[in-house]
Structure formats: C-alpha cells, structure tokens
Amino acid sequence: MSAAMTGTVAAERPTSTFQTFLSRRAGMMPTFAALIILVLLFVGAEAFLRGDFITPGNISALLLDNAYLVILAVGMTFVILTAGIDLSVGSVMAFTGILGAQLLARGVPAWLAIVTMLAGGAVIGLLIGTLVQYFSVQPFIASLAGLFLARGLAYVVSLSSIKVENTGVLWLQTNRIRVGDWYITPTGLIALLTVAVAAFVLHLTRFGRTIYAIGGNEQSARLMGLDVGRTKVAAYVISGFCGGLSGLVLTAYSGAGYPRNGIGTELDAIAAVVIGGTLLTGGRGYVLGSLVGVFVYGTIKTIISFMGAEQSWMQIIIGALLLLFIVVQRAIVARSEQRR
C-alpha cells in the first residue's frame, strides 16, 4: 500500500482542450469508431459502385427501410444501459403488428388500434421488468419468456398475414414529404422523434441519469438514493413500448401484419446498439450511437443487395462486427480493471 503512496499523482489537470474533451467524452470513442465505419462503408460503396451509392434517394431509403429497427434499437439502448438485455423485441414487434392489423380488419378505429398496440408492447415489457427487478430473474431468461409469450400470442391473433387497408395507418408510409430529391415519411419522422425524445430523456432527466447510474454500479446508484427499482422496470417498459411502436411502423411500411415478422430481429437490434458504441456491461453508450449502429447495419444490407450477394452474408458480417466490438469492449474493461 505505502509503496503506492509515495508515487501517486495528485489531481491531474487537463492541459489542452483535446485532453479536456477526452476526459469528458472518453465514453464516446466506440461511437466515433462506428461513425468512421459508416463513413468508410459509404465511401467504399461509392467507389465500388461507381457513384451510384450516395444518392439522396438511397440515403432517404436507408432511414425509411430501417425505421422499425431504429425504434427497437432505441428501446434496447435503455435496457442495455442498465446492464440488461431484451430478447423479446422482435417478437413483440410481430405480435403488436398482427394485433393492430387484426383490430383494423375488425373495424376498430385506427387510434384505438394504435393505442392497443403500444399498450400491448408496454405490458410485455412490464412483465419482463417485474420479473427482472422483483423476482431477480436474469434479464435474458425473463426476456426469453417475453419472446415466447409475444411470439405465441402473435400466432394466437392470426396464423397467417392480415392485410391492412386502413388509410390512416397506411398514410404513415405513403405520405412522402419531399425536399428536392430527399424524402421522408411519417414513419421516418416517428423514428427520428423517438431518437430525439430518448436522447433528451437519457441526458437531461433524473430518470435518464439513473439509467446510466444503474449500469455504472447498481449498488452505488441505490446508495445514492436513486430509485433503482422503478427505473429498471421502466427501462423494460420503454423497450416494450418501442416494440409496439415499431410494430406500428412495420405494419404501415409493409401494409400488413404477419406473425412470422421479426424473427431474429432482436439480435439485429442488439448488434446495432453494440456497434453504435454501447457497452453490453451497461452504463456507457449513446442513443445517437444506436442510430449510427442501425445505419451501419442498413448500409451493409444495402451494399449486399447492390452487389447481388447472399443476404446470409448479412448475419455473418453483423456477427463479426458484433464480435469485434465485444472483444474491444472487453479489452477496455480489462484495462480499467487493471487501473484499480
């Protein structure tokens, strides 16, 4: 002990703005890495595909084609920041999607169908959160149960796909707002709005800071008098709600509800969040990073289809990226453990 006492440094004062930035924003490095990967993907695709890739149409489509995943990734970010995981989101999306389509087909007004979808997602999230927080069930087990429940319920609602004819819901996708060659639909706006609200909540409310605190050290967060229990449950409720919202967006996008939608989508959402720089051990990451992660995901997918390659490469490339980020994260954690 005393050997260390002679040599320890006093308060280190950052000497340059760069160092100040580093000490304040060290946690952003993985997100920057994702951003660089995204830029490289764009530049590479542009060079490779002879200037056909970076077009306003393609980039607009990138957001719209992946709007459902952006929303899922936002919800997943909340859960992963608390050091949890939610494997149910793909199935929740399928369940709420088919539920909404069924309700609309039965003549239920659009607003009521939408509220039911969102509430349905949130209730499944509540179930998972309750199991995790109050019954000490490991998050992946609790959310696997949620996955089972949602997937089974999707088939209970309907065994086959149901077409949506409600103009109100379809309007979300068909109404294109154009600015020059760029365009966006209400579904894209919903996705961006979700990101904005989540960023606001995570950074500027006590609830959001508590989410980060739980991921940093749950015990400490409790000692600081933060409401750990309710916040943790709320993270899963938010994730479930986002599942419902993405069910709505996907239904509008595809014009139908289908109970086999979103199989494996939870893994895509996790991959996007991790690639976007959020640590699976919790406490570090940004919801904007998750947006970048989804764009990386979507860009790879677009490139693969441009090249006419097998879509199965998608899962392999995303798996490899996930592995890369996990190993790098592990190295970061191992180094900070050594510092202690």
Binding site: A10, A11, E12, R13, P14, L22, S23, R24, A26, R340
Partner: peptide, 14 residues
C-alpha cells in the same frame, strides 16, 4: 482542482 464535467473513471483512484 479537477474538471467537474470529466468522467470519474478517467481519474486516479486517489
């Protein structure tokens, strides 16, 4: 005398 906005984990244990 440290930057209050800096991330705690970047500082020494002391």
């Amino acid at each position: 005398d440290i930057d209050p906005a800096s991330i705690l984990g970047t500082h020494s244990v002391a």
